[in-house]
């Protein structure tokens, strides 16, 4: 099937089996390796990307569903001002250890702050409930998100 979509601000037309997972297309065909496969079952959030500004699990998306949609991965999000604030805050709060979960967590954070620029602890916990982290124990991530929300006031 022919699929037209926008990937990191660039229009793409691909010929694919529509049952292919968006995750594999991003990693294998576009070499966007910030997108990780943790579980392949929607449980870990390592594969989270933005679709029309909302966090989604790319391992659950058949590419037949991305026609006309805008997909954003870390590779382009990292060029934004908002990313810089998140990065700085995460580093300062100790939100990153091995880093495997980080791209997914950054995407979920961006999706949350777009909807709710001043989230409380519970709202942050809920927004990140689909992202597993084996290293940090989450509290440092919550702290990082809060810091980003405060520092980035007006950006979201």
């Amino acid at each position: 099937m022919k699929i037209e979509f926008v990937l990191n601000d660039k229009k793409q037309v691909i010929q694919v089996d529509p049952a292919s997972r968006l995750l594999d297309i991003l990693r294998d065909d576009f070499e966007l390796t910030s997108v990780k496969e943790g579980c392949g079952e929607g449980e870990c959030g390592a594969c989270v990307v933005l679709m029309d500004d909302k966090a989604v699990n790319s391992c659950l998306i058949p590419v037949g569903n991305i026609e006309g949609r805008h997909i954003v991965t870390m590779e382009s999000f990292r060029k934004t001002e908002r990313y810089k604030v998140i990065e700085e805050s995460f580093l300062e709060a100790g939100s990153v250890q091995c880093g495997f979960c980080t791209p997914g967590i950054v995407m979920s954070t961006e999706s949350l702050l777009r909807e709710n620029p001043k989230p409380g602890d519970n709202e942050i916990r809920d927004a990140l409930s689909g992202n597993l982290c084996r290293c940090t124990g989450y509290n440092m991530i919550i702290k990082g998100v809060k810091l980003a929300a405060t520092r980035g006031k007006g950006l979201w």
Partner: peptide, 21 residues
């Protein structure tokens, strides 16, 4: 197939592989 969140997992064949329908 709507969201695919059930189907893509039920038909999954493992890492890096497209589901089999």
């Amino acid at each position: 197939i709507a969201g695919g969140t059930d189907l893509m997992v039920q038909k999954a064949r493992g890492f890096g592989l497209k589901p089999d329908f």
